[in-house]
Nucleic acid binder design. Sequence first.
DNA 1: TAATTAACTTTGTATTTCAAAGTTCTTTAT
DNA 2: ATAAAGAACTTTGAAATACAAAGTTAATTA
Lengths: 99, 99
Amino acid sequence: MKRILTKLNKAFDHRVRLGIMSVLVVNDWVDFTFLKDTLELTDGRLASHIKALEKVKYLEVRKRFVGRKPNTSYRVTEKGRQAFQAHLDALEELLKQSK
Amino acid sequence: MKRILTKLNKAFDHRVRLGIMSVLVVNDWVDFTFLKDTLELTDGRLASHIKALEKVKYLEVRKRFVGRKPNTSYRVTEKGRQAFQAHLDALEELLKQSK
DNA sequence: TAATTAACTTTGTATTTCAAAGTTCTTTAT
DNA sequence: ATAAAGAACTTTGAAATACAAAGTTAATTA
């Protein structure tokens, strides 16, 4: 029960980033539009939260053309997967704490 | 799986507030100093997050003297308890989402 | 040639967070 | 009586974050 809060990752403080991560941990290569539609975000808002996760290397990007359309996809890195799992573990521990 | 993000409560976006709530849901009337020590926060920082939770009526306050010392305690309101539970339920749903 | 689509980026504002210092009230020490 | 200390804040000011709205780029289809 030590240092409860330090184990929670501030990269995941925001619900939009929690949403992005939770979609990405169960799907390999998810594209921008899918995330945008699933999470019901404007493209600017989605882009900025993705950028924050990219910055700490929790996400990687792939840009290509699918048919004739540009397509950008993301997937979680190993580092991101571990960080997210650690965050969830910390959350769980926090919540099952007894008196 | 609809409107995933709207069910997450932004009052609980921050890890300090998650920490406060998780202590309060399992303890009746927790005092300021205990929260401060448990969560390892400065008093200013703790006070400001508590204030945010009070503002939305998730916490109530009791001020009194214990022996000769002033003592301020907090407990979660019914509204707060429900909101927190709803948030945790939403989190769980978010995380168990499948492809 | 014009309009559309995808995926951003930029701009400007508003909100949030924080440390550090200041405050109030009461007790204890000198 | 005066000073110092403790509890629980509040205030201040600065930095970081978040957001909507508008602008951008490159390729595509009408």
